[in-house]
Amino acid sequence: MPAASLDVRGLSAGYGQTHVLEDVSFSVPAGGRLSILGRNGMGKTTLMATLMGLTRRYAGSIGVDGRDVTGLRTTGRARGGIGLVPQTREIFKGLTVEENLFVGLKDRPRRAIEEAYALFPRLGERRRNLGSQLSGGEQQMLATARTILGQPSILLLDEPLEGLAPVICDMLMAAFAQLASSGAMTILFVEQRLESALDFAEEVIILERGRIVWAGASAALRADGAVLERYVGVGGLH
């Protein structure tokens, strides 16, 4: 499935009666990269979940390559090309690495899991281990690889580096860069590590209390210490 454009218009969503996102609009061209920044609790994860159809939507629309997917359920959106790697990873802990990857294959042949091992060689070494036996970094690799095997045209990465050692973060970022440079998918990247987020994407949006308060090029944000201080809590970057 080739990379697809994403067009979000006036999206409001939340949980039950609680509105978390308000009138969120942005676009990402096919093959583009967008980082989503903001302090904790500002709606970044809710945005990812809403794009995947996992929350309650009150208003707005979501378009993939010009096709409206707003009315589709989670399964339909996944089939339509959206793939989410959730913050909580949610691997199947009772299955081995290889078995987890089998679940992500859908109708693809078994040999396709070699793509996952090529992207994350460490998973190949651990293929017979149960999910419960993996470190946090390995779980993140597995969650990412399992989603990638479904060949999404839009990949949503929700805080993939959270709580991981720097060396593992570097490995993951290298893999994400490889995926992005392949041009096979559009990538939305939610991350608290500012340097990683700005290095990864050309464009950035910042969420504050469920609304987009800043949108623009990552180079422009890098140079704007006042915006970073106000919305991200970081005074400036080296």
Binding site: M52, L54, R73, T74, T75, A78, R79, G83, L84, P86, E90, F92, K93, G94, L95, V103, G104, K106, R146, T147, G150
Partner: peptide, 11 residues
């Protein structure tokens, strides 16, 4: 183990 996760994989 987790039906929601499987549905998010398009199954």
């Amino acid at each position: 183990e987790d039906p929601l996760r499987v549905s998010a994989l398009g199954i």
